[in-house]
Write a protein that binds this DNA or RNA. Structure first.
Lengths: 95, 95
DNA sequence: TATATATTTAGACAAATATCTAAATATTGC
DNA sequence: GCAATATTTAGATATTTGTCTAAATATATA
């Protein structure tokens, strides 16, 4: 996981909203765009950032491009967080 | 939790390294600074960002200021992540 | 009180980023 | 092949951000 890319991707509210939009299943770029008052070009930029972070997957379907969540990276990110913030009763790695 | 502040705070590698440095216990600003090749002023800026996100707590001890992790926000963040990325076998909130 | 040490604040600057419009590319269907 | 639609790329611009040095503030101690 490219940690830096993932965190930078998550730092923008529009991108987090895009991820949230994708929770219930894959959507085309245009469908996602309907929820945002932003140009298609700007949206495309956000898609690129999410893709670079491997947070979303894409698939061309005819003239559309379909975006979906990549939950694998989410799990990595969650693990990373737990690693970064030791909870009170977790053992610390003894290394 | 100020989600936006937390994510922005986590997006910088120096700040994540500071958090990691604090895993084993509280440290003064100066002690933290020893690990970084960066001016005290820049470091102080990073502390401010982490504080604004409520990721660290501070306490003055004489002429020193002691920083420590605030693990509460971590837990909030983890929860937020799980909410954002539904895992395959989790039920979705029916609302 | 004066000096030394620790930290933050102020102000400047360069690099990164979110946005836009216009143009390019890919695909469909006539 | 051509026109329409969907999406991305290019280039410009304004804002944000990470860094610096210099100055200010807070505390300790001689």
């Amino acid at each position: 996981m490219k940690q830096q890319e993932v965190f930078k991707a998550m730092a923008d509210p529009t991108r987090r909203a895009i991820l949230k939009r994708l929770q219930d299943g894959a959507l085309t770029a245009g469908e996602i765009g309907e929820s945002f008052d932003i140009s298609a070009a700007s949206l495309s930029h956000h898609f690129a950032v999410l893709k670079r972070a491997d947070l979303v997957r894409t698939e061309r379907r005819g003239q559309y491009i379909v975006y979906s969540l990549n939950s694998t990276v989410f799990e990595d990110l969650a693990r990373m967080l737990f690693d970064l913030f030791p909870s009170r009763n977790a053992r610390r790695d003894p290394s």
